[in-house]
């Protein structure tokens, strides 16, 4: 049968939507860009600001590779419209190291060999930064539960939990 998607059902708008200017603070830098309403924060970061450390994994909020911090909280940037984050403060993996020194989580992931292919790693680290800021995870079980939004298909989970425990203790 024919595709019955929404695009075929709804009468499309008569005029093309206009691009919208937005201002974001990304890793401490003031950024101004103009995006279409349907541009996700993930695409804005990668395609407009050339910050490709944030990864597009599933693009459906199921893998966590796109995790960034918005106003201090971890979110899935693939399900976030950039226009809805006007004025927000964004931290990506590129913004965690300071003055040439790795963030404690980055160092812990190296110390514990907490990745194999590395594709999920920037999302894992940003998510872990959010987890430490939340202060809700005390035990390894709680870290596992509150990190469940980040999938690692290489299965580096035991080392990821160990790395987060190390960074948490030193934070």
């Amino acid at each position: 049968m024919a595709r019955s998607g929404a695009a075929n059902r709804v009468t499309r708008m008569a005029t093309a939507p206009e691009k919208i200017p937005i201002r974001l603070t990304v890793n401490g830098n003031h950024m101004e860009l103009t995006v279409a309403p349907w541009t996700t924060l993930l695409d804005a970061l990668r395609d407009h600001l050339d910050l490709t450390g944030t990864k597009k994994g599933c693009d459906h909020g199921q893998c966590g590779a796109c995790t960034v911090l918005v106003d201090g909280r971890r979110i899935n940037s693939c399900l976030t419209l950039a226009v809805m984050k006007q004025g927000a403060e964004i931290i990506t993996i590129e913004g965690l190291a300071h003055d040439g020194e790795l963030h404690p989580l980055q160092q812990a992931f190296i110390d514990h060999d907490a990745f194999q292919c590395g594709y999920c790693t920037s999302g894992q680290i940003c998510s872990a930064a959010g987890l430490i800021a939340e202060g809700k995870a005390k035990t390894a079980d709680e870290i596992r539960e509150l990190m469940s939004g980040n999938i690692c298909r290489c299965g580096a989970y035991p080392n990821i939990v160990a790395a987060i425990q190390q960074a948490k203790e030193r934070s």
Partner: peptide
């Protein structure tokens, strides 16, 4: 649109096709 966690996904899958959010 509020959190968008479901609606954005449905738009990506062409299940929802709002003219305006």
């Amino acid at each position: 649109i509020a959190g968008g966690t479901n609606l954005i996904d449905l738009i990506k899958y062409d299940v929802e096709g709002p003219s305006r959010l």
